[in-house]
Amino acid sequence: MIARFDYHVPASLDEACALKKEYGNTGIVVAGGSDVYAKMHLGDHLYDHVIDIKKIEDMQGIRWSETEGLSLGAAVTHHEIERHPVIKERYDVLVQGVRTIGSLQVRNRGTIGGNICTAAPSADGIGPLLVLDASCVIHGLGGERTVPLKDFFTGPKQTVLADDEVLVRVTVPTPAPSYGGAYFKYGRRNAMEIALLGISVYLEVADDGKTCSAMRIALGTSAPIPIRAQKTEAYYIGKDLSDRQVVEAASSIILEDASPRNSWRADGEFRRSLLKLLVPRTVRTAYGALTRE
């Protein structure tokens, strides 16, 4: 049973922002609702007002051009992303990420905006967008601003969104014509599972086909918020990615970027050993994806 609330369907961004501001803690913005309604189901009275933004025009659709890159409406579902031909071809790492979310039924409702705004450290859509250097287009009553996704999360389940702001779109620059990307989700089970560790990698190499010229690594469930592993990224620049030992040597650095602690799901030492092992492995997978092209 879901508790009682008033239901609002703002027609425009401004209207949505005004409602969000007006209701503050007593209201909640809802897109697909897969997070919000699941939480509300037990009948606990969490909110007096639900602000349904799923149909707001500016939040719809997937746009793409070589020069402008990709622009995802916040209300785009995981399913739409999964089957989009350009995303499949050029942003495969994002498809790899969202495909691991829940089940078909969840991906048909859940949105990329919701995945980002929930700000769960385990979110499978965030890591790939982080390494693709995505930015968030935010609308507030004062107008629009753009924030790099890596600066979007401010604390556990906290974001930069102000009381009157919503996420409108996510923009992703066009990646290099040749790059390697990989997403690796580690869980106890293979589906319908919260990631115990999520690793996203984007890399580019120089003309020799092996010297790393760009490296972006994002880690999920390794810190209270989704993070980039900047020290590890720096390590890889200029390194020979075809050399397995060189790739694996990053394991001595990775814990400077993230050092997960004990939780009931796994103890800290195990999670740290996984990080050391799986980050280089995912880099190798991404490198493999590049050289295959």
């Binding site: 189901h41 399913h79 969840v106 409702r109």
Partner: peptide
């Protein structure tokens, strides 16, 4: 309404969804 077991699956506009999460 956890959205796990799928006992509430229906098809809305030709897409399977959980009727509890809508």
């Amino acid at each position: 309404g956890e959205g796990f077991a799928g006992s509430d699956t229906v098809i809305v506009d030709d897409r399977p969804v959980y009727a509890n999460l809508m």
